[in-house]
Design a binder for these strands. Sequence first.
DNA 1: TTGTAAGCGTTATCAG
DNA 2: CTGATAACGCTTACAA
Lengths: 345, 345
Amino acid sequence: MEKDVTIYDIARLLQLSPATVSRALNDHPAINSNTKHMIASKAKEMGYRSNMFASNLRRQRTSTIGVIVPRLDSYFMSTVLAGMEKVANDANYNLIISQSLESVKKEVANAKTMFDSRVDGLLVSLAADTENLDHFNTFFQKGIPMILFDRIMPQKNCTNIVIDNVKAGYDATSHLIEQGCRRIMHMTGNIKRNVYEDRLKGYKLALMDHGLTVDDALVQLTNLTRQDGLQMADHIKHMASPPDGLFVANDFCAVSCMGALKANGFSIPGDIAVVGFNNDPVSQVIEPNLTTVHYPGQEMGEIAAQSLINHLNGLLRINTTNTILLNYELVVRASSLRTPPAESR
Amino acid sequence: MEKDVTIYDIARLLQLSPATVSRALNDHPAINSNTKHMIASKAKEMGYRSNMFASNLRRQRTSTIGVIVPRLDSYFMSTVLAGMEKVANDANYNLIISQSLESVKKEVANAKTMFDSRVDGLLVSLAADTENLDHFNTFFQKGIPMILFDRIMPQKNCTNIVIDNVKAGYDATSHLIEQGCRRIMHMTGNIKRNVYEDRLKGYKLALMDHGLTVDDALVQLTNLTRQDGLQMADHIKHMASPPDGLFVANDFCAVSCMGALKANGFSIPGDIAVVGFNNDPVSQVIEPNLTTVHYPGQEMGEIAAQSLINHLNGLLRINTTNTILLNYELVVRASSLRTPPAESR
DNA sequence: TTGTAAGCGTTATCAG
DNA sequence: CTGATAACGCTTACAA
């Protein structure tokens, strides 16, 4: 439990001033490279570590980025965070991560914590029931930059990072139509959230473009839980004319619904072709494997973090690029393929 | 982008000394409760927020706890973290969370980051290939407390929080035996990790206690990935005498294996009864629903965080309680029930 | 019950 | 290229 080494200790031993040591350690250009080396090696030898608190106090910044996400327990989010961590580490930023558990109340509390922690910037994906961004006003007022990703909401001077959910919904639906589906059901989440609203839009557009009518009875808004998937299967079972295609805005729910449909004697994709969303690993657990939309999680995390850091370092004015669209990919698997696939039975 | 309010500002307006303001804000007993109220309301009115960096610098502590986990993308881990966040927030501690992605190399890097961030304490669940705790020596030397949870390793002066994995493995296996299984296969992970080693021990003990012999060919060490589950199904398919019971140390892998077994014509639980581990939501997606061992994630997170915080606050000497065992529960579902269940078909 | 003043470890400014 | 010095905002002996 020895005392921490400070730049004063190094300075004393090297007969230099603390200022010089500080500059050397920060690779200041005005320092002789010999002294730099000498200081660096002495610092390592003594086990010196910079005191972030003194440094933060002095510089009035924290080198910390706050991250607020709805939940941590999805494969997608885990890859997003891995991407953010990678970029943040490389740029010597720390991450403070918290989950809102889909509740705006907790999101408000998280925002307050982040504010009190004086994060330099914020990366946020909104909770299901968030209706406005008022709880981030303190950040906006102080000019602390914030980037929204995936679950976004239009906001002046705030970059958004998403995939084109309308187009993805369109592609998913069009794929089902191409496979011969004519009565396609769409099961989605709270359409307050852009991701669900947009996928629904894409679904409707695809139907219209292919000369099919939009039947509101075939659009189901739920919370996309396992339970919702089961109930939907039950609902379909009791429909006078059940759908021949099903587009679910979330793999997990799609998978639970598929299971129940199969148990009720529906054949997939024969009776009902199914497409999910996210390319979660469960999509490859279910039989038949689930067709889905691949979401570039790692990339989304990296780009969000990098954009924020660039902005903080003055390398990129964040409000010039207001929305960044990432590429997605429709991954076709057996659950929607009516033309016999060449892969595993 | 106004200037931050400090205790000096409050002091000036209230004709008090900064010291009094500081004490009042920290609820120091020696301050008149009237002045306390007056200061508190003024502080709120002015939008004062404490500067953690100045405070940390002065107090030589950070009120920050570091968390290192193998991955964030499991339901289990998400609930653990929710529990930790809850406790930490209530006690005014911050959490810095990072994932090792099951790699000891990244775990080492994470530990270094945590050390440089001067966390007051550490909550760790080890990566798959971690062989020793040398990378935490800096913490031990400085007397920074560390608690291991779930993926643990014996270490002096370091509390461990786990369930009794031996007993849980024993119960899972015994349950299969009670359902009439006589050739029970066990599929588990890297037995460097206590959780897998112990579940294997429990499996062997249960067999022996019930007069069954342990057949090494029925013990399969893998990485418990989806792929491993599929391969295991293939392996079973080609066995001269396939098992009639299967105990997998992880729900996700169990589920992938079950899917492939079904596709290969095995009936579950008829031909092979299956038990998983963790009570992951996927266990209720697969048909038949998977029997599994419920893991108390939220509780584990809460207890880990609370124990660490108690130690930091001097309320509990951490080395007196060296291992905390939490209760688990065998959740019996259709995948292992040969006596017809009363629930959904 | 309140005030005074020193100091936590850095970094920025100004001077040399 | 290097040094002296003054902050940054807070806490805590010690005094009153």
